[in-house]
Amino acid sequence: MDFRKQKLSIAKAKEMDMVQYLSLLGYEPSKIRNNDYWYVSPLRQEKTPSFKVNRKLNRWYDHGLGKGGNIIDFGIEHYGCSVGEFLNKLNGGFSFQKPLKNIPKIENEPEHQLKILKDVALSSYALIRYLKQRKIPVEIAVKYCKEVHYELNAKSYYGIGFKNDSGGFEIRNPYFKASSSPKDITTVKNGSKEVAVFEGFIDFLSLRALHKNLPENSQDIVVLNSVSFFERARPFMEKHQAIRLYLDRDPTGQNLTQRALSMSTKYIDKSSLYQNHKDLNDWLMHIGKQQKKRLGNKL
């Protein structure tokens, strides 16, 4: 069932397979024992896997936090959002497989791991059209992205791939949003005293689109690829004299921005530029060329 084509109810969301959902987020089990899938916790930093998903029950439990529940409970904890906001993420952000009740229960079933087959220069008409819909010029995207061909559940797909510092990819196409392992931040080092920080690579490309003529070495870049990697990015960010935050305007992004501002005067909140939109790309898609020109050098 393709949940993008209909609004997802709480009951339907609870039927989603937790193991598949975690795989779409880039998390793969460290070990599998019968129906128990053990992970390094996606909710906190740890070295020994203590986050368990019982696939038969479709429930999770984080032994380090002492918390657990269904996929909605996980989403609220992971994104720091409400039930409604998480359902919106499910409706708009991912393409899912069949609900759990339609998946046979197989002991020691291998994990559904996304496997990168190859990465090549961007050339797919569908992907280029998707970039144009997001107002991202192709000549900018090809500098930072690849066309990634990957395999998931024995089927082949392709998407726009943005590489992280550990060699994994963030993958986007018109219907799918996922990550390949290993997950990590992406840094672009230009030797600048300033760094711009984004949650995802589409927002980074959006800023480049807004400043096509700006020298690429005018600032360094950090793409978190997940807000959970903020702490991982801090050592690199805080080497700079100015840290410009272009984080999302949702509660998670705004809470993280406020936390950063409270830690150091180096952090500068730039999200007021798109205050009536969910993120920088959403603003770019809805604001006309005249309004872009009005902003001038404010970015």
Rank of each mutant, 00 (worst) to 15 (best):
C145F: 05
V148I: 09
E46Y: 06
A154L: 11
V188C: 12
Y125G: 09
K189F: 12
R4F: 01
R44M: 11
K189W: 06
S30R: 08
V148T: 12
Y246V: 08
L205Q: 05
M237A: 05
I103C: 05
T257N: 01
Y130K: 10
S206E: 01
K189L: 13
E46F: 03
I136K: 06
S272N: 12
D165I: 05
G84C: 02
L224F: 02
Q133V: 10
I103W: 12
Q133I: 11
F236H: 10
Y130C: 04
L122W: 03
Y175H: 15
S271G: 00
I72G: 03
N153E: 15
Q275N: 09
V188M: 13
L210S: 05
Q113C: 07
Y130F: 10
K189T: 09
K89I: 12
R44A: 12
S226M: 03
S272G: 15
N91M: 04
L214H: 09
T257V: 11
F201E: 07
Y61Q: 07
E194T: 12
S30W: 08
E147T: 08
G159T: 03
M263S: 13
K143A: 07
P42D: 02
G161C: 05
T186H: 11
G93D: 06
E139K: 15
L214I: 07
G200K: 00
